[in-house]
Design a protein around this nucleic acid. Structure first.
Ligand code: SF4
Ligand code: SF4
Lengths: 185, 185
DNA sequence: CTATTACGGATAATTGGTGTCCTGATTCTC
DNA sequence: GAGAATCAGGACACCAATTATCCGTAATAG
């Protein structure tokens, strides 16, 4: 650690100092917390956007958009109509943080250069580009190593009683409201 | 490689698909190429913003702002007045890609949650947060492993004759325009 | 003194994430 | 079949941050 050799130019007086640019957006955060929420409820199904948005205290209309993206990507599975809603598109242990982040953020080229616009003939041999590509690779590798299942297990280990977004730190077996329908807000 | 389990939701029709959000800004690119440019010229000093902007075909006025930031961070050293300009603030082997990126992008918290606004009591125990923090750490570690000196050496190895931004692939010794003054555009 | 160059504030332009709304399609319940 | 619930998706407004420009000031070489 301690790469902080640089004085961290973040003085409020200067509009040219960025606060945090290389950064995952709110969308990813909402998506992850939502999926975590769903996964933490065991095999309950058909969560409405309304319910999940309320649990996180975020905008339902925007969260709906995110869910549509996740559905198209196969991470969520939608069920239209009355009593419909969203469920996980595959098993929690088959959904990694990188999967979710990729959907919300796009293909994530961490760094890219407008070489064509410049008189630069380095191209593929450029150490700048290859270094950033390697940095991106390691970052993705890390995110790819953690699944929704890991999140749930970690939560169960760390907080047997506390609550998270209305989810009781349920015993390993099955969460509060069991499998089937009969969802009451 | 091949984490691409996700269909990469990037259809142009959908405004909710981001193209590239987690991404270093143009500022970082300009900064790196500028510093590379300076370092590649050996111990020549006092490069004017005008000259470097012209070599990269970018806006001089904006590049000037970036240089000011780099100067405040100690990566560049400025010299006012006629025949003034910018030089490296320390040796090329003491300036890493992370140093530059940090100045241009800020402190870079890759991921953060509005926990206070939510009913989430995981806090420091959250596996989401710790995973992203680890991802960020590895990314920075990679960027911190490459210096301007590495860039120059890599370029010299890879392109003995080709040109980059007007810099001849000079022999190891000393670049085209030698040490001292007498800069003619 | 004069030309040159960096410094830094003010401000405009542009892009992209965020958020809302409305119409339509689907499916459950009665 | 009627009606309610819920997702799908397009259109659009909003806002924040990056990008870009301009101008007056300060410093320095000659
Ligand atoms: S030096 Fe590398 S990053 Fe810069 S323009 Fe050339 S290829 Fe792109
Ligand atoms: S689960 Fe983790 S990321 Fe989500 S609100 Fe709680 S602490 Fe933050």
């Amino acid at each position: 650690m301690e790469w902080g050799l640089v004085p961290a130019v973040g003085s409020a007086a200067n509009p040219y100092s960025r606060e945090s640019v290389v950064r995952y957006t709110q969308s990813t955060e909402w998506a992850l917390d939502s999926l975590f929420f769903i996964a933490a409820h065991g095999d309950r199904q058909d969560f409405s956007v309304e319910e999940i948005a309320k649990a996180q205290q975020v905008s339902p209309s925007y969260l709906a958009k995110i869910f549509q993206q996740l559905t198209k990507a196969g991470i969520l599975r939608s069920h239209r109509g009355a009593k419909g809603g969203y469920s996980l598109g595959r098993l929690p242990e088959q959904i990694t943080l990188l999967d979710v982040a990729t959907v919300c953020e796009g293909s994530i080229p961490l760094y890219d250069c407008n070489a064509p616009a410049k008189s630069c003939s380095l191209g593929a041999k450029c150490l700048i580009l290859s270094t950033f590509r390697e940095a991106e690779r390691r970052m993705q590798e890390t995110l790819n190593g953690v699944t929704l299942q890991d999140l749930v297990e970690s939560m169960r280990r760390n907080m047997s009683q506390a609550t998270w977004l209305g989810v009781e730190g349920a015993p390993a077996g099955r969460p509060a409201e069991a499998s089937a329908p009969a969802r009451k807000n």
